[in-house]
């Protein structure tokens, strides 16, 4: 069925794009209730998180259970800079990403020599360390009391304070991040990432600096996670260390794996499903999470490549048409 949807989407690219765009833009009208709009905003934030984790896991074949820690670093960075220094949102947002990316690069330098199980636990330990430091550095982070009163973002003097406006802003960033990652995917750097996922020795023999590219991929993924953190902090306006623990990392990882590792659309599908699921099954009360665990197991057992993933190990969708597209652009260049 997924294949048919894909085929249909490819055939009617323009129509589908317009329809999806219209749907996304009209969501505040369709949903109506602020509660559901809140869910929509969180979906956008988690789309950024899962897509950026996919960059690490799906592209380069590494692993990270520290993703929520970088999300947290971004959130705290932006929150503290705007409260204590009074910097505007448009400056704290990139700074949050850069700080998360920098720390990601340092952690990457330390841990990316590890393999499989060791990398899993190494990153898990780093994630916990970040949380513990936030929890105990009370002079800066107020520790377990968290940081309340984070201001709404102000962009060119316009305060984004209601859910509808916030939704459009977060949607904008989510779309940008997905598009950037897609562009990366079809570039020299993206191909190097995927090559080292497929065969490190082969990639090194082709001149790819394996370790450097791993660190870049990791840092870049962390950068986007930091951006997501800043968007989150100014939305909920109160953050504390326990919002960025291992369970969040697990949730993001699950979105990636459930949606489809290594594909662009997969993490988006995963994020939407995992965020909508608890809302749909609210009537089940405490049995909801039992069902959640059960569904996770069943989907992984019968569709290990993920719902929107492709058959095979970590397949990558290749757009046959793109060869011809490039050719077309070549003639265009010649004409010009």
């Amino acid at each position: 069925m997924i294949a048919e949807i894909k085929k249909f989407a490819e055939k009617n690219k323009l129509v589908v794009t317009i329809a999806v765009a219209a749907l996304l833009l009209l969501i505040p009208l369709i949903l109506g209730s602020p509660y559901l709009l809140r869910v929509a905003i969180m979906i956008c934030i988690f789309v950024i998180l899962s897509s950026s984790l996919n960059l690490i896991i799906g592209f380069t074949g590494m692993f990270s259970l520290a993703h929520a820690a970088f999300y947290g670093i971004g959130a705290y960075c932006s929150a503290l800079l705007s409260i204590k220094v009074g910097l505007p949102f448009l400056i704290t947002l990139p700074l949050a990403g850069i700080l998360a990316g920098l720390i990601g690069a340092i952690i990457g330098l330390a841990t990316l020599r590890l393999r499989e199980t060791f990398l899993v636990f190494g990153t898990l330990a780093f994630g916990e360390i970040v949380r513990i430091v936030i929890m105990n550095w009370t002079s800066l982070t107020r520790g377990p009391m968290g940081i309340p009163g984070i201001p709404f973002p102000k962009i060119f003097g316009f305060e984004i304070s209601n859910y509808t406006h916030y939704y459009y802003m977060v949607l904008f960033f989510a779309v940008i991040v997905v598009l950037l990652i897609r562009r990366l995917y079809n570039s020299r750097v993206g191909r190097a990432f995927i090559a080292l996922r497929e065969d490190e020795t082969g990639a090194a023999s082709m001149g790819v600096n394996v370790f450097a590219y791993k660190v870049w991929a990791f840092a870049l993924g962390c950068f986007f996670a930091g951006i997501a953190g800043a968007l989150y902090a100014h939305f909920v306006r109160y953050i504390s260390a326990d919002q960025f623990g291992v369970n969040e990392s697990f949730a993001i990882l699950t979105m990636v794996a459930l949606g489809g590792t290594g594909s662009i659309i997969g993490p988006i599908v995963g994020a939407v499903i995992l965020m909508v699921f608890p809302e749909l099954f609210r009537f089940l009360a405490e049995y909801r999470m039992v069902l959640y665990g059960l569904i996770l197991i069943v989907i992984m057992m019968f569709k290990p490549e993920g719902i929107a993933g492709f058959k095979g190990m970590f397949p990558r969708d290749f757009d046959m048409m793109s060869i011809f597209k490039r050719k077309k652009s070549k003639t265009e260049v010649e004409e010009a």
């Binding site: 570039s187 993206g190 497929e198 023999s205 190990m313």
Partner: peptide
């Protein structure tokens, strides 16, 4: 044989050209 199995045939060759090119992350973005 150490090909990149789940990359297209052309992409395999393009990885081979890695050294001839310089564009980096920002260029791709």
């Amino acid at each position: 044989i150490r090909l990149f199995s789940y990359m297209s045939v052309l992409d395999n060759v393009l990885v081979g050209t890695h050294n001839l090119t310089k564009s980096f992350i920002v260029d791709a973005f």
